[in-house]
Design a protein around this nucleic acid. Structure first.
Lengths: 129, 129
DNA sequence: CAGGATCCCACAGGATACTG
DNA sequence: CAGTATCCTGTGGGATCCTG
């Protein structure tokens, strides 16, 4: 009887993999930054916009809407003129900051190595002389 | 003397935030899946391709090249005809699986809540009747 | 103030065909 | 087998202008 080396047929798919599912949520350009900003507590729309360098109103709104839809961010409207809209992390949103902080720790610890690796790689692949 | 509520000027930027820097690395469509596949150990090019549902050769190659450039994946070529190319996580790559596993744990624990939140949100925003 | 609506483009990424 | 090379499309996201 012959022992197969390993019978593997596509067992990793985008829709199922635990890695990808979270990344779908946080991997947009601004999502992580918005969550990061909101970790300091409730904040007004304009305030978030001012804190995040380079974000446009369109993207800020879009990002906040997505996060709200995912139940990660709460939106509180104080009906007045002009209106006051406060955003904050929900309890669910807070739980997400835990794994995110692990990512951040990884960055502080190892990102410089990634940069070194890139330089080394680019050195070889595209030598200047 | 007046205590400013909080003087905040853009203190969160894409290039600096620890959240975004890692995400730049892993937030491409297939990157996380490839890392996930390689957690089982060294694997041949074709094997990875077969394990990951829906990935094309182009994207597999591109993803692997990026990971190699970032120093997260190692490429071992056995010069023969046909060639044998094995990929594996580097020591640096292994370190990244730690925070990734936290993300995965978050998914198992809370992703269903995200789905519920989405349903609830869509229910209100676009009622069927 | 907090957005919605539009226009537009760059680029990620898919399909297909070719090669050492 | 393990890739390149091209071509092509969808869409993420920027710029700009409008509004309750």
């Amino acid at each position: 009887m012959k022992i197969p080396t390993k019978v593997i047929h596509a067992d990793i798919s985008l829709s199922v993999c635990g890695y990808s599912k979270v990344l779908e949520i946080i991997s947009n350009k601004w999502t992580a930054l918005v969550i990061y900003a909101l970790e300091d507590g409730s904040m007004r729309y304009g305030e978030i916009g001012r804190r995040i360098d380079g974000i446009s109103k369109k993207m800020l709104t879009q990002t906040l809407r997505q996060l709200e839809r995912d139940g990660l961010v709460k939106r509180d409207i104080t009906a007045s003129v002009p209106p006051i809209v406060d955003y904050s992390l929900t309890a669910l949103g807070e739980t997400l900051t835990v794994p995110l902080k692990h990512l951040k720790q990884w960055t502080s610890a190892y990102y410089s190595e990634v940069e070194k690796a890139r330089e080394a790689y680019d050195e070889i692949e595209s030598p200047s002389d």
